[in-house]
Design a protein around this nucleic acid. Sequence first.
DNA 1: GTTGAAAGACACCATCC
DNA 2: GGATGGTGTCTTTCAAC
Lengths: 135, 135
Amino acid sequence: MMDHVDMRIVEELSKNSRITMKELGERVHLTGQAATSRVAKLEDQGIIKRYTVDLDLEKLGYVVQAFINIWTNDLSHQPYLSFIRTQTEYVIRNYKISGDSCYLLECRFPSNKTMDRFLVDLNKHVNYKLSIVIS
Amino acid sequence: MMDHVDMRIVEELSKNSRITMKELGERVHLTGQAATSRVAKLEDQGIIKRYTVDLDLEKLGYVVQAFINIWTNDLSHQPYLSFIRTQTEYVIRNYKISGDSCYLLECRFPSNKTMDRFLVDLNKHVNYKLSIVIS
DNA sequence: GTTGAAAGACACCATCC
DNA sequence: GGATGGTGTCTTTCAAC
């Protein structure tokens, strides 16, 4: 499926996904057209899911970043899962994990005040342990 | 600094960073030139850090994804920090966090065997608690 | 921030190896 | 699978408003 050239392509696109296909081709010693068709295949296979940007969350006004471990004794996790689906502004990702806790929730908040409000609401559904990201 | 149009631009580029400036302009009701200059400003301000891709790690052969909480009693964290800098293939991100543990390490591995080797080496520098990502 | 026009670069197509 | 050549589109850089 993936050969070394595909690996190099994925690597280069991770570094800068807005380069032209011609430029990408040169970096992996291919013509632009060959690069284009390989990238199209990677997209079709779902290996490349989407093209996106790395943003500076602090500069965007999200001053607080946090990881929140989630515990719940309920057999159904639906109340929790429904709740976080309503909080897309603050929730970056929600991982189901093995180990002590049930989920690991990655969040960002514009202030401690909004985080506090979020945690109060979260606490209606589950127990949690908060870890603030320092760097 | 950031107005609503800039917010919309960042939003659209998050969804697809490979659209043309003309297309981006249309989506936020601007001309291509105006979109280009706004994006250039966002890049200069460091709000847009880089253009990248979302990859399917499983399809790339990284079958195991894990979060690892790190504890250390050493005053200097340098041995640990030096170690993870040598493990760029497996380490996605390393967060310094508040709370119980010192760091939260996000990793991916092509197999349980490679993860085990990593953990054995990691254990020479710090104590850890492993959480495997299920979904 | 918009419009318009120029040159250059790129993407996409079919065709070929 | 990859390379070549032609056409239409986009980008870039001016200008003036």
